[in-house]
Design a protein around this nucleic acid. Structure first.
Length: 432
RNA sequence: UCCGCGAUAGCUCAAUGGUAGAGCAUUCGGCUGUUAACCGAAGGGUUGUAGGUUCGAGUCCUACUCGCGGAGCCA
């Protein structure tokens, strides 16, 4: 295979002749000199084509290149302070690879609707490339974190026979002669089986919600990572969650400076994301709301505006724990010291980004769990395997789920979740 | 499901009820250091759909369609 040189490699090739391949990001022309901005996914490079330095034909090719045309360019690499990225290519040859006529996304501003219609092309823009790179690095940080702590990646099924938590609306499908199947809304119940087999596991995959949520904080298909640990109580769970978030944020701050700069992210807010995070009980949170003039009744769940008020009291993520058990899922363990509340925790991100983590200690007592399933009107037959986990060597265990796109959105400072995933799926959009 | 906002050139937007315009993109011309380059010119429209008011509707009224934001639900 021929050696492939990319823009990110150029510091090794100063003074040498190289051939690069990519797409035309932009072009400026001043009579006998043309400035071609090449992008190749690793960076941006200004290429100079002087009329006197190349043949008539090569100059014509350079002249004919249009936005997003793909081409090959050869020339000498030099350091150049005036150019973006600090390098410049003095071209001697240009070859067209693929034409591009009337590229829809011009260098001026566009509306969100138009951009999302052209998502497949929008992804080529500088901003979207940076978001995708940060998303990738966050995913890697997540995996590194758990892998280094002795967790085993444990893949749950995506097609499930029932609603995991019995609350959300799910996508339904016909499953041969077995009746209805559903796309999973959480791998958690399966992760519990994994934790009792392997000790510490995490699931990482797509999740589906058929809720008709029309907000910037919702997608119908999103990625979630869910660790589940045997012999962890709620406090252990919260300790892990804050160490986890600190690791992700600090890793991105350290390794993705350039991309955060392209996104114009105010990193001073992210630098404060270090342990310990404030921990407030639901009762404390209700007090905060009342002190801020909110007419809030104990027992209700917090709305988006309530969450923002609570998180604005702090400069880092806040962990709200011990919610009324009535508003939480059936599998969450009740607090032995106050059975009205569940051993649950939500982590609210700063700057109004809302809930990024939801977790709990799980109910490990067979009889209490059976009772809870009846109370929630869930079909016990579907949960027999799950109840077996309490019949054969039940142990205290806990876990949580982190929404990947909400995390990407928060760290990148995005306005809308749809930019945090390559091809967003929303209630009124399933294309491109 | 409920509440609010919107739809005009390929894109982003203007246009007191009185000849539908600008910037970008495209095409042509000019410029040997440009940084969303600049300068000059050209092409480009059934103003979301249907109806109504009016001498006259992009503009006012009604219905519908589509989209956006928020609530609820949640990560």
């Amino acid at each position: 295979m021929e050696k492939k040189i990319t823009i990110s490699d150029l510091s090794d090739y100063v003074g040498q002749d190289v051939t690069l391949k990519g797409w035309l990001y932009n072009k400026r022309s001043s009579g006998k000199v043309k400035f071609l901005i090449l992008r190749d996914g690793t960076g941006y490079l200004q290429c100079i084509v002087f009329k006197g330095n190349v043949s008539e034909d090569v100059f014509k090719v350079a002249d004919s290149l249009t936005q997003e045309a793909s081409f090959e360019i050869t020339g000498k690499v030099k350091r150049e302070e005036r150019a973006v990225g600090g390098f410049e290519l003095d071209a001697t040859d240009v070859k067209l690879i693929g034409e591009s006529h009337d590229f829809p996304i011009t260098p001026k501003e566009h509306g969100v609707e138009f951009l999302i219609d052209n998502r497949h092309l929008w992804l080529r823009s500088k901003r979207q490339v940076s978001i995708m790179k940060i998303r990738h690095r966050i995913v890697k940080a997540i995996r590194d974190f758990f892998d280094e702590k002795g967790f085993t990646l444990f893949d749950p099924p995506i097609i499930t026979p029932n609603a995991c938590e019995g609350t959300s609306t799910l996508f339904e499908l016909d499953y041969f002669d077995l009746g209805k199947g559903y796309l999973t809304q959480s791998g958690q119940l399966y992760a519990e089986a994994g934790a009792l087999a392997l000790g510490k596991v995490y699931t990482f995959g797509p999740t589906f919600r058929a809720e008709k949520s029309k907000t910037r904080r919702h997608l119908t298909e999103f990625w979630m990572v869910e660790p589940e640990m045997a012999f962890y109580d709620l406090n252990d769970d919260m300790d892990l969650a804050e160490e986890f978030l600190e690791y992700i944020v600090q890793t991105i701050l350290k390794e993705k400076k350039e991309d955060l700069a392209i996104l114009e992210r105010d990193t001073s807010k992210l630098e404060k994301v270090v342990r310990p995070f404030p921990r407030v009980s639901y009762d404390d949170a209700v007090e905060i709301l009342k002190n801020n003039g909110v007419d809030f009744e104990w027992g209700n769940d917090f709305g988006a505006a309530d969450e923002t008020i609570i998180s604005n009291q702090f400069d880092r993520p806040v962990m709200v724990h011990r919610y009324p058990s009535e508003i939480k899922a059936f599998y969450m363990k009740r607090d032995p010291e106050n059975p009205k509340v569940a051993l649950a925790v939500d982590v609210l991100a700063p700057e109004g980004y809302g809930e990024i983590i939801g977790g709990s200690q799980r109910e490990d007592d067979l009889n209490l769990l059976l009772e809870r399933i009846k109370q929630h009107d869930l079909p016990q037959s579907f949960f027999e395997w799950y109840l077996d986990l309490r019949r054969y060597g039940s142990v205290p265990h806990s876990g949580f789920g982190l929404g990947l796109e909400r995390t990407v959105s928060w760290i990148c400072g995005l306005e809308h979740l749809r930019e945090a995933i390559p091809f967003p799926r929303m209630i009124y959009r399933n294309t491109p």
